[in-house]
Design a binder for these strands. Structure first.
Lengths: 138, 138
DNA sequence: TTTTAAATAAGAATGATTCTTATTTGATAA
DNA sequence: TTATCAAATAAGAATCATTCTTATTTAAAA
């Protein structure tokens, strides 16, 4: 994960390359959780004291608009961000509110197949979001 | 949908029967959309001017706690309520934020079957939420 | 190097939801 | 039927994630 790599990611998507964007993308890419904007801010603010939370929100949103990252709403009404943009499902822990990726090729295929078969006359399905809700064991 | 029916629903779940609870349950039961607390409030406030929004929130939440209704978070971070509590999926319109039920026995079976096969060593799946995102055709 | 549109910092504003507190009410027991 | 009291409600303040506003700064083009 070189600076050059991130810089290319950002500029190739049509965005100006700035220090803030580099730091924010890098923090999100490192994170294996699905951090909130505030969590991203907490990670980077020590090393970047003048960076503001509003910038984190705005930047993450422009990344989403430009297809660099994904976002989704968690069960608590807080936006979560994800640098990994291939199709995958999520495990949501009702106790800790942690969200983990869940990858299962069989499931993804099954769902893609299901969607392609659906022909609703007044709704065009574009994508599907699957959340398995439950509890982390101990 | 008689008053008696609703009263039984409420008292059987262990809650006191009050005018507010009757009105709120009735409004939600009538709604085929998945209204927000505020939308429920808008529906009933004309006929019940002294009823407060806080009571709507508190009442809907106690209905959820007692298994009378379901709630879920929409993609906009707003809580939606649903008097229908059997397993079903949702269609979410990215433009209007409308949410409609989507029932498909084949899909439900497939997912139940999938869940029962899953044995994750550190996560206990309890239920699954499926949202098909897309757009309403005109 | 100059120019300029875009990005940022700082903090105010917003909107959904929760909390606080005083008042009211439903259900139980006398 | 009435008194009692825990639970429910009304009203509005408080909270928290997010968006908006505006002045300032900056990346990249000329």
């Amino acid at each position: 994960m070189t600076t050059e790599f991130i810089k290319n990611k950002i500029t190739n998507s049509g965005l100006k390359f700035t220090h803030q964007r580099w730091v924010i993308y890098d923090a999100l890419y490192q994170a294996d959780s699905h951090p909130t904007a505030d969590q991203v801010f907490e990670i980077i603010k020590l090393a970047n004291p003048s960076l503001s939370l509003g910038t984190v929100y705005k930047t993450l949103d422009s990344f989403v608009q430009n297809g660099l990252i994904q976002k989704f709403m968690d069960q608590n009404g807080v936006m979560r961000f994800d640098a990994i943009i291939d199709a995958h499902s999520h495990l949501y822990c009702k106790e800790t509110h942690e969200i983990r990726d869940f990858r299962n090729e069989e499931l993804e295929k099954m769902l893609q197949n299901f969607i392609s078969k659906q022909r609703l006359n007044d709704f065009e399905i574009e994508d599907v979001s699957i959340v398995f809700k439950g509890r982390k064991k101990q």
